[in-house]
């Protein structure tokens, strides 16, 4: 008997896991914010379609990332149980799945919503899959600084879906997520240094050492904290957002200072900063949604 391709044991849950559903939910949430604060009212079903396409596009980017990084994932404790390293999904199946999802997400968004949003989504997927995953992640300790831009695009895509254009407000939201990304991921890398080193990923703490990483976290947070106030200062968010951003930014800065002062083997400050950074972004965007009262969503 000749060799044959083993029939797949992967079920729907494995394919869903490939799409990084937790990342997808954050992408959808930030895109929803961009959509909701836009000054143009669109039909709710158009808004739903836009968010669905953005979610699928984000999932596609996650699939393509897992396809390419299967070798790294197999060597890291945090990611070794993902479907491809576990052998539940063949890499070729994952690649096909990711490409089809990306194609459908972009085309459907372009046909049913508008071309600008579709173009931004296509660029975001390309940026994450090619620029970050294939090129930067393995090449430079600045990988997540530049590559993090991919995670910052969804509010712009949401805004573009509603208005067909880009303006200052979504750019501000882009910048908030852009400057949030380094402290978020470097805090994780600080207490997962051995994991990243084992996989050969040049994260900043691995390549430049803890001290440089801690200093960089503090510097980026010093930019992030006042930047988070920009929607209120520029007038497209109210005092509720201003107060929330002030408090959250102060906590984020305090935690970054604790990280800057911490030394191994202690890692409590790094873990606290990582955990709070997730809450920080969620709270900022949630309050922005509440503050604007979904004015842009209801047609």
């Amino acid at each position: 008997m000749g060799a044959y391709a083993e029939p797949s044991l992967a079920d729907v849950g494995d394919y869903v896991a490939l799409m990084k559903p937790r990342v997808m939910s954050l992408v959808v949430f930030t895109a929803l914010t961009g959509l909701a604060i836009a000054p143009v009212r669109i039909h709710p079903l158009t808004g739903f379609t836009a968010l669905l396409c953005i979610a699928v596009g984000a999932g596609a980017a996650g699939v393509l990332n897992m396809w390419y990084d299967a070798d790294i994932d197999a060597r890291m404790l945090r990611t070794a149980r993902r479907p491809i390293p576990m052998g539940r999904i063949h890499p070729r199946e994952a690649l096909t799945f990711g490409v089809i999802l990306a194609g459908f997400a972009v085309v459907v968004l372009g046909l049913l919503v508008n071309v600008l949003a579709a173009a931004l989504l296509a660029f975001t997927i390309f940026f994450y899959a090619v620029i970050y995953t294939i090129w930067l992640k393995r090449a430079t300790p600045q990988n997540i600084v530049i590559g993090g831009a991919a995670g910052a695009f969804p509010p712009m895509i949401g805004w573009a879906a509603a208005t067909g254009s880009i303006s200052l407000e979504p750019v501000i939201l882009f910048l908030i997520i852009f400057f949030w990304t380094p402290p978020h991921f470097w805090a994780l890398a600080l207490y997962r240094t051995e994991d990243y080193a084992r996989a050969g990923v040049p994260m900043l703490p691995v390549v430049k050492g803890d001290d440089v990483a801690r200093r960089q976290i503090l510097l980026y947070t010093l930019i992030l904290a006042p930047l988070g106030l920009a929607p209120w200062l520029l007038g497209f968010a109210g005092p509720l957002y201003g107060a929330t951003a002030t408090l959250a930014g102060a906590i984020m800065l305090w935690l970054a200072i604790q990280v800057w002062r911490e030394r191994r083997p202690e890692d409590r400050a790094s873990r606290n900063l990582f955990a709070f950074s997730v809450l920080y972004l969620f709270v900022l965007f949630a309050v922005l949604l509440i503050d604007r009262g979904f004015g842009g969503m209801i047609g």
Binding site: P7, S8, L9, A10, D11, V12, Y15
Partner: peptide, 8 residues
């Protein structure tokens, strides 16, 4: 394998 294929 049949169950997995059916779910997919």
């Amino acid at each position: 394998q049949k169950r997995a294929r059916r779910s997919r």
